[in-house]
């Protein structure tokens, strides 16, 4: 399941709902992304996330489907927030549930790596020197390429 929303989420509640009623699930792996209060040695007070409504949902669904095709997963969840977020707030939640831990770990890692390079979100940081758009990192592209199938 995917959700794109402005409001916060509760990771505990989400994890509970994800595996509830499915006793074949042996493990759930999750990742929570937070707003850091520093960037390039500078203090960051908040972040504003812009996205492309419509394409965002389409891309997240495609990323989720790829994970489900690749690993034996019982459930997956991606939540991504947009709008203004203060330092310390949750931005993103990714979780993968499977009978065994390897699939859950790998799928969770894959989902966040792919999301970072494919889903149309853009971060603008608010720092003492002003607001600026965050530049994409080549290390994120490399992280995604790691999952390329040969």
């Amino acid at each position: 399941m995917i959700r794109v929303q402005e409001e916060d989420f509760d990771p505990g509640v989400e994890l509970q709902k994800l595996s509830e009623g499915n006793l074949a699930i042996g493990g759930v792996c999750s990742f929570v992304g937070l707003v850091r209060d520093f960037a390039g040695g500078e203090q960051v007070s908040a972040m504003t996330l812009e996205h492309y409504p419509g394409m965002t949902e389409k891309q997240l669904e495609a990323i989720e489907k790829q994970a489900q095709d690749r690993w034996p997963l019982d459930a997956t969840l991606i939540i991504h927030r947009y709008g203004r977020l203060e330092a310390g707030e949750r931005i993103v939640f990714v979780a993968a549930a499977s009978a065994h831990r390897e699939a859950a770990f790998e799928a969770c890692h894959f989902l966040i790596d792919w999301l970072k390079t494919e889903a149309p979100f853009w971060k603008k940081e608010s720092a003492a020197s002003g607001d600026h758009w965050v530049e994409a990192k080549t290390s994120d592209d490399d992280a995604t390429k790691r999952w390329d199938q040969t």
Binding site: G33, H80, I91, L115, E118, A119, P120, F121, W122, A136
Partner: peptide, 23 residues
Amino acid sequence: HVATDHTVSDGDEVAFFPPVTGG
């Protein structure tokens, strides 16, 4: 997502943006 040689025609929705920075 497409490359610059992708064709465009009337009725298309075309979007321009920087490399994405979500997550």
